[in-house]
């Protein structure tokens, strides 16, 4: 079995061939923005998720205007093929992918294996030179919420999950799912309560990747998500984590690699859900 949409993944060899391709813009988004500044793929633009990929004031994704100004000023147009990559097996690269899809960017791809795969190959070039491209006018589409779940939809999915009318995938670590911890140690973004959304299935994000950070094969993924966890491609699905980046990764896997029909990323995730008053929570650890 092949990936449902193999075109959304590119290899390091593909990127190497397109380093100077004017139709391609390579963008790095890391959990830790220091990584980009120390070194990156030649010509890659660096985006900082903390500043560039969220609304600077309210807790939300960036507005259309914010995204247009950001990408236009960095020389990215809506016609470009955008290749995203980053640390932690592409967590925030996948978040960037999701965000660009919400705003209708046509051709977005992920570098399979992310920055660690590139770094592991000594012969591939790296630089710390920050590129400068002539500014463009980036035209985003109106925000399309097909792939975004808000808390209401998460609650709905939780209700419907009882009768198998929806499925919720919790991609956090087992200790976060069970309620042993609210967030991994040292994290500043946290919630008031520990546990998970009732009806959610626990499939940690890392289930989808090999040790070198590349995605597992379609057969392996099917084995894990479909046969192993009983998730169905036709059932409406909501993925969530703590702040929405690890679940973007799983959203990408379910939608593009396994071809699930209706998958949404709940970007409010546990920091929102676990802080709300009166919503039901399941917890295995007391």
């Amino acid at each position: 079995m092949a990936y449902a949409n193999p075109d959304v993944l590119v290899s390091a060899a593909w990127v190497l061939e397109h380093l100077k391709d004017p139709k391609v813009r390579i963008i790095e988004v890391d959990v830790d923005p220091k990584q980009y500044h120390a070194g990156h793929i030649p010509g890659a633009i660096g985006l900082d998720w903390t500043k560039d990929l969220q609304d600077p004031v309210q807790r939300d994704i960036p507005t259309k205007e914010h995204l247009e100004t950001l990408l236009g000023s960095r020389g990215v147009s809506h016609e470009h093929t955008i290749v995203l990559y980053g640390d932690a097996s592409n967590w925030f690269a996948a978040y960037g992918f999701w965000l660009l899809k919400l705003y209708g960017h046509k051709d977005v791809r992920l570098l399979d294996g992310g920055r660690s795969k590139w770094l592991a190959t000594e012969s591939l070039p790296m630089t710390n030179e920050v590129p400068s491209y002539p500014p463009t006018t980036y035209k985003a589409q109106a925000l399309d919420l097909t792939y975004r779940a808000r808390v209401v939809e998460a609650l709905e999915a939780s209700q419907k999950a009882k009768a198998a009318g929806a499925q919720l995938v919790d991609v956090r670590s087992p200790d976060e799912f069970s309620g042993k911890v609210i967030a991994p140690p040292g994290m500043t973004e946290t919630a008031q309560r520990a546990g998970h959304i009732p009806g959610a299935v626990s499939v940690p994000w890392g289930s989808a990747v090999n040790q070198d950070g590349t995605f597992k094969s379609a057969d392996e993924l099917r084995q894990i998500y479909v046969e192993g966890k009983g998730l169905k491609a036709e059932t409406p699905t909501v993925a969530y984590c703590r702040i929405g980046e690890r679940s973007s990764h799983t959203w990408f896997v379910l939608k593009y690699l396994l071809g699930f029909k209706n998958v949404k990323n709940y970007d409010g995730s546990w920091t929102e859900y676990g802080s709300m008053i009166g919503v039901p929570i399941e917890r295995d650890v007391r």
Binding site: G39, M126, P184
Partner: peptide
């Protein structure tokens, strides 16, 4: 955060990046 078993941590990656780039 919930790292992959056996994967390189951020510190090794960043140090390698300095040496490479």
């Amino acid at each position: 955060l919930c790292p992959l078993p056996g994967s390189e941590d951020g510190a090794i990656g960043l140090a390698r990046t300095y040496a490479r780039a």
